[in-house]
Amino acid sequence: MTTKAFSQLLRDLGKQSLYVLNPSISKSYYVALDLSKSNKALHTVDVSSSETLERYINSHIKDNGAKVAFGGYLETRNIYQRSTYFKDTTPETERNIHLGLDLWMASETPVFTPLDAEVHSFKNNTNFGDYGPTIILKHTIEAIDFYTLYGHLSLASIENLKVGQTFKKGEQIATLGDSSVNGDYAPHLHFQIIKDMQGFTGDYPGVCSKMDLEFYKGNCFDPELLLRLE
């Protein structure tokens, strides 16, 4: 399926009321959050500290009368500089471009599948700054397979999970983890759409380099096509 056709498939699915967090939270209570390196407000925030960043995000949510902060697809961020897992020797090869959508909310917040799914794989990705507990779901729509990734979950989310296990649209699959297990981040969900898993299991790059951006733009599609939070 071409990139254009796959994007249209996602757009058509997005016409439904799809969600990955509590559906009782109106979209009017979601507020956009800019964590890009171009956001001058972050120049005085120690983004290397999960506690400091969490305070900043919670203040942003409160100041806007919201309940959830969201954003980050294709955002170039400085937050990854704290981890050798993402660093490289040149600006072109350093991984700092975010490939999913982040939804910032408290730990233990329930997470739901937006579509019928089966468990493709799961894993606790324990590198500093990594996903922590991660679930990847496989979806089949009109004979087309694609995948959604859920990162920064609680350990309990993967304890009794089985590959091939099925979930119905809107069924709870997990809860959010805290900084002690989620890669040392403020609690949030990393939600990513992946066309081709490329043989990965329980993991898939959620951050890429400038050099590899064009490839990943063609394999990791904007989650807004499904969720339509804007």
Rank of each mutant, 00 (worst) to 15 (best):
D222I: 00
Y147F: 15
Q198T: 03
G129A: 07
N182M: 11
L137E: 03
V31F: 01
I194H: 10
L33A: 06
P133Q: 07
G202V: 04
F215H: 15
T93H: 14
Q81D: 13
A69C: 05
T84R: 14
K217A: 12
I136W: 06
I135C: 08
A143W: 03
D102E: 14
M211R: 09
L103T: 04
L149D: 01
F86W: 15
T201G: 01
F146S: 09
R82T: 06
G218Q: 12
L137M: 12
K195R: 15
F191W: 01
I173C: 12
V45R: 07
R77Y: 02
P110N: 07
V111E: 13
T52N: 14
G72L: 02
G72N: 06
T84N: 13
H120I: 00
Q81A: 14
D88F: 04
H98V: 06
G132S: 06
R55I: 09
T148Q: 10
D12F: 00
G199N: 08
E108W: 05
F191G: 02
K138G: 00
E108M: 11
E159P: 00
F200N: 15
L153M: 12
V207F: 08
R55P: 00
Y29T: 05
L74C: 03
Q165A: 14
R55C: 06
K40G: 00
A32H: 08
L10H: 04
V45Q: 06
S28I: 01
H43W: 13
L103N: 04
E214N: 13
Q81P: 01
Y30E: 04
E75H: 07
G206N: 11
S154A: 15
E171M: 13
Y216M: 07
M197P: 08
S50P: 07
Q16A: 14
T90A: 09
